[in-house]
């Protein structure tokens, strides 16, 4: 996408100069204890939490989402998939909120085909928090069928309210279980994920002066 990106190691303690942080997927620390539970205490996380606190854009994908939950940057927790198995397949999600820095290049209700690959993607939160997520349009993606119908059949893992991705109340932190980066190029036979990265770039461009240094 013509942008420069830098890898930040989990042992690093600074993310100086970054416009946005992406926590990728990938079974960090072997998923010991709970997914994301140990990773959440890696040295870099203090800087990530601080960056998010200053309004910096943070995107957590799959294990990255689980880490954001464990770190308390997003509400809720992940349970084992409803049918206990690891799921690796393309699914569909509906964009429930297209007015976020992560989805502004999507149409409201747009259906994206994205790959998932996880064993613990069964989102759970208490009823009070769920109501708040619904009331504040914090549910950004929900599992749906190809036509965009949110049904229990289209829910791959048993997630509460078909939740595939949520944002925080401030709107600058997003976590989702699907992998947009694994479906963002023609060579991968799926380009839907690119909408999310285009949205992030668009939001950064618009808010340049508000971004933390």
């Amino acid at each position: 996408m013509g942008q420069s990106a830098h890898l930040i190691w989990h042992q690093d303690t600074s993310i100086k100069g970054m416009d946005a942080i992406i926590l990728p997927g990938g079974f960090s620390y072997g998923d010991y204890l709970r997914t994301g539970a140990i990773a959440r205490f890696s040295p870099i996380m203090d800087a990530v939490v601080e960056f998010a606190g200053r309004g910096g854009m943070v995107l957590g994908i799959c294990n990255g989402f689980q880490i954001l939950l464990e770190a308390g940057l997003l509400p809720g927790a992940m349970l084992r998939n409803r049918h206990l198995s690891f799921i690796c397949e393309d699914i569909y999600v509906r964009v429930e909120n297209a007015d976020t820095p992560f989805t502004n290049q999507c149409e409201p209700g747009q259906v994206l085909r994205l790959p998932i690959a996880h064993a613990d993607g069964n989102y759970y939160t208490d009823p009070v928090t769920l109501s708040a997520l619904q009331a504040n349009a914090q549910i950004v993606f929900r599992y749906c069928d190809r036509e965009g119908h949110v049904t229990s059949q289209a829910n791959p893992n048993g997630s509460l309210d078909n939740i595939a991705g949520i944002r925080n109340a401030a709107g600058n932190v997003l976590g989702l279980m699907p992998h947009p980066e694994r479906g963002a190029e023609k060579v991968l036979h799926n380009e839907d994920g690119v909408f999310i990265f285009r949205s992030i770039l668009s939001a950064l461009e618009r808010n340049k002066i508000h971004q933390p240094v």
Binding site: L33, R34, A37, I38, F41, E70, P75, G76, A77, L79, Y124, T125, D126
Partner: peptide
Amino acid sequence: KLLANTVI
């Protein structure tokens, strides 16, 4: 802090 996730 670590051993349990009190959300679940």
